[in-house]
Simulated assay, not measured.
Amino acid sequence: MVDGPIVAVRGEVYREVAPELARFTVTATARDREREAVLARLAERAAAVRVLLDAAEPAVDRRETGDLRVWPETKRSGERVVAWHGSVATTVTVTDFTALGELMLRLADQDQVEVAGPWWSLRPDSPAYREARHAAIADALARAREYAEALGSRVTALLELADNGLAPQPMMTRAAFKSGGPADAPPELELDPQPQSVHAAVEARFTITEPVLD
């Protein structure tokens, strides 16, 4: 049991920091009456995307292929297949933002390729999170001292510190480009990295000396 007065405060901080990662998706598509033709074209277009991403190293931090789809198009009146469709999507993570716009344009200029993004974010282990937590603790201590000073007291010890969670609030933008073929002129693209909001909060309880109540 604690003897003496206690002050309970909440320390909180909001910050905007520069993003560290940019993600976008590249989706290659194909359509034909023959399934084999769709598979061949899809493999060819996916390979062309891979070549461009290989050339973009080391700006590309990682890439992940997912959502491979091949499906038939049928008539409403029955199950007769009139065409085959295929798509394969790749998620690309970039750390060098100076190369991001050019890379997205080159990918979007490929035949039957759609590019969507970017989505800005921080790394999971970003120093911004640690700095926000430290700032929240400092804010809690400053608040406790202010309340103690108003009572003619001073903070003597920390009793409890609880983390209310650190919540990154990513801001994003989306630009989508779909190429109709190599002859299409690529659009001009200017990307401004969007700041990321970071919020940290703690609950703290401190003991203080006896107030001077005049």
Rank of each mutant, 00 (worst) to 15 (best):
V70M: 11
E34R: 15
M1V: 10
T29E: 09
G78D: 02
L21D: 11
A200F: 00
T156V: 13
A167M: 14
A144H: 01
V198T: 00
A48G: 03
D125C: 09
A40Q: 15
P182N: 14
S77Q: 15
R130E: 10
V13T: 02
A108E: 03
F97C: 00
W119H: 14
A89F: 10
G78V: 02
E131L: 05
E20M: 05
F97W: 01
V82Y: 12
D214H: 11
Y129C: 01
T98G: 05
A138D: 10
T91C: 14
Y147G: 13
A128C: 10
A140V: 02
R50L: 10
I6V: 15
D96N: 06
L42N: 03
N164C: 08
G101I: 05
A46Y: 09
R106V: 05
V81C: 02
G11R: 00
A43Y: 07
E114K: 09
Q169F: 13
P168I: 02
V88G: 15
L42H: 03
L107D: 01
A46L: 13
P124A: 08
R80D: 14
V26F: 01
A140Q: 02
D32V: 08
R174N: 15
P168V: 03
V9R: 01
A183G: 09
V49Y: 02
V212F: 11
R41Q: 08
T25M: 15
D61E: 10
D111C: 03
A89E: 15
S126Y: 06
E102D: 09
N164V: 05
V113N: 06
L213N: 03
R80L: 09
P182C: 09
H85V: 09
D67P: 15
E79C: 11
I137A: 09
L52M: 08
G11C: 01
V155M: 04
V60N: 04
E190C: 11
E36C: 10
L141M: 15
W119P: 11
V94Q: 07
P124N: 11
A28E: 06
E188Q: 15
F177T: 02
T27P: 12
R145M: 13
V17I: 05
V113E: 07
V92R: 06
P195E: 02
R154M: 14
A40E: 15
H85G: 08
W120Y: 07
K178Q: 15
A37F: 11
E64I: 10
E210P: 08
P187T: 03
V82Q: 10
A22V: 05
V51F: 14
M171Y: 10
V7T: 02
V60G: 05
A99W: 08
L191R: 03
V9Y: 04
R174M: 14
V7P: 01
A22W: 05
R154C: 11
A40R: 13
A200I: 00
V17S: 02
V7I: 04
A59H: 03
F177W: 04
V7N: 00
S153F: 03
Y147Q: 12
A144E: 01
P124W: 07
R69C: 12
G11M: 00
A204V: 01
D54G: 05
D3S: 13
S153P: 01
T156C: 12
V202E: 00
L151C: 01
A162T: 08
V82P: 12
L122I: 14
A28W: 05
L107W: 00
R106Y: 05
A176F: 07
V60S: 05
I137R: 11
L166H: 02
A175V: 12
D67K: 12
M171H: 13
P58L: 10
D54I: 07
E146V: 06
A108Y: 03
Q110D: 12
A201R: 06
